[in-house]
Design a protein around this nucleic acid. Structure first.
Lengths: 109, 109
DNA sequence: TAAGCTACCTTGTTATACCAGTTTCTTGGT
DNA sequence: ACCAAGAAACTGGTATAACAAGGTAGCTTA
């Protein structure tokens, strides 16, 4: 039971929420997402991101299109679907309520 | 991919944090914890709580003592150890930083 | 003494993240 | 023309935690 594992566990499920938010703001591909997450100090590795994106795609929450790159292999650019937008709203509520509950418990004394 | 599962996933690891906080405020036994969590709208079932308490005990973050009940079987009353207090401080930071990161990502537009 | 409640515990399943790779495509150097 | 290097997408195995659905044991009460 160490802090770094706790961090991983606390973040579970949150990543899906964050990724969906990032995609909801406009077309992006994997490296863009990793950059933005890293900038916000939420580290994520490729082996986590790609399966997650496939899950979102399978659930019809996002879609993608191949785009040729000017330097290097083609990229998958993701965008959010209407279904994804709706789901994101429920995630917003879930997160908000979770923060509220935690606040309530951890600020008591 | 449904909202109730997302809630479960988002909460992973958070429970450990909340339970440790509850125990840190004074001696409690399982039902007390469930009551407090339920009051804060953070539902948890026994099958989740007991293994978690055993993990915390194994990691020396909490200790317990048996206490006779006035009505019913004896109870395990938990209290936090010094090691647990230290760990709780790092969890506070982990949680705070996680909230900050999520805020940063989800409030952008 | 049997029923019912309370408290604690266990087993099997599911879902997600991580680690450590692999594959494919493109470019650049020789 | 060939090979190295890099970028991008992907995969298989492992660990962890939460849940569902049970089980066991002690105490109380009718």
């Amino acid at each position: 039971m160490n802090a770094s594992n706790t961090q991983i566990q606390m973040r579970k499920g949150l990543l899906e929420f964050c990724i969906l938010h990032i995609i909801s703001r406009g077309e992006v591909y994997a490296s863009d997402m990793i950059d933005e997450l890293t900038e916000a100090k939420m580290i994520v590795v490729e082996g986590t991101l790609y399966p997650l994106l496939n899950r979102l795609k399978t659930a019809s929450l996002v879609s993608y299109k191949w785009v040729e790159s000017e330097s290097g292999p083609p990229r998958k650019y993701y965008s959010i679907t209407n279904e994804g937008k709706e789901f994101l709203l429920t995630l917003d509520q879930t997160w908000e309520s979770l923060v509220k509950s935690t606040q309530l418990i951890t600020s008591k004394r």
